[in-house]
């Protein structure tokens, strides 16, 4: 397959990833400090860029398939890049959702102050997972892809911890905040799933095996 085509696709995925990581930074800033209109505007304008990149990458990939009939590792790469583009776009959507839920939270409420450390921890973890998953794909780093997949367990645990914390809160009248925090945690958990999907796509490129629906994924990864 044409090397320039690969380079263009990789560059666009790289650019999309940078914008997604920028979204993480803004969300982090909003959670720890405050919301303002500029930050919300920036999130929305980044989301438009992510969507545009997704369309461009898909177009490039479709053209490559028509022109070059990729085979073997070229075929795996192009299929994986197609999937990864979709996952990155979904992560962008989920981060936008998170920003829309954050505006409904009472920052002065106990329920928010109690769950904030867990939310920050979860946010940092999913940001790292996303970064590592893309790195594993571009650099064909098998062990990084494996470890990223296994990190998803911690995301699931944090989601449960946040949920339990919300159930036990004494701020029962802060329903908007409680529901918003729960939704934020759920969206973060979905981001973790998509980062896992990206890592699984990396494994498909490197090893030619689709482990998405393996039942004993963890023991499979440990044995590789």
């Amino acid at each position: 397959m044409n090397k320039l085509t690969y380079k263009n696709i990789k560059t666009n995925i790289d650019n999309t990833t940078k914008i997604v990581l920028d979204q993480f930074t803004i969300i982090h800033d909003i959670l720890e400090n405050n919301i303002d209109d500029n930050k919300i505007k920036k999130i929305n304008s980044n989301e438009v860029l992510i969507d545009n990149y997704e369309m461009n990458i898909r177009e490039e990939i479709n053209t490559s398939i028509v022109l070059y009939s990729p085979r073997a590792s070229d075929l795996r790469k192009i299929i994986a890049y197609y999937d990864i583009t979709g996952y990155l776009e979904r992560i962008g959507d989920l981060l936008l959702n998170i920003s829309e839920f954050i505006v409904k939270i009472d920052y002065n409420s106990n329920v928010f102050r109690n769950t904030l450390p867990l939310l920050i921890k979860m946010l940092k973890l999913i940001e790292n997972m996303t970064k590592n998953a893309i790195f594993a794909t571009i650099c064909k780093d098998r062990s990084l892809a494996h470890s990223t997949i296994l990190d998803d367990n911690e995301i699931d645990d944090l989601n449960v911890q946040i949920f339990l914390s919300l159930i036990k809160t004494e701020d029962k009248d802060k329903l908007d905040s409680i529901l918003s925090i729960n939704s934020i945690a759920s969206n973060m958990e979905r981001i973790g799933d998509h980062a896992t999907n990206i890592s699984e796509a990396a494994i498909y490129i490197i090893e030619g095996i689709d482990i998405k629906h393996y039942i004993n994924k963890e023991s499979y990864l440990e044995n590789l």
Partner: peptide
């Protein structure tokens, strides 16, 4: 299998041109 994940490096090189 050969066209998606060939076992031999030479096959891989041939199939990817």
């Amino acid at each position: 299998k050969m066209f998606t994940n060939p076992s031999n490096k030479k096959t891989e090189e041939y199939l990817t041109g």
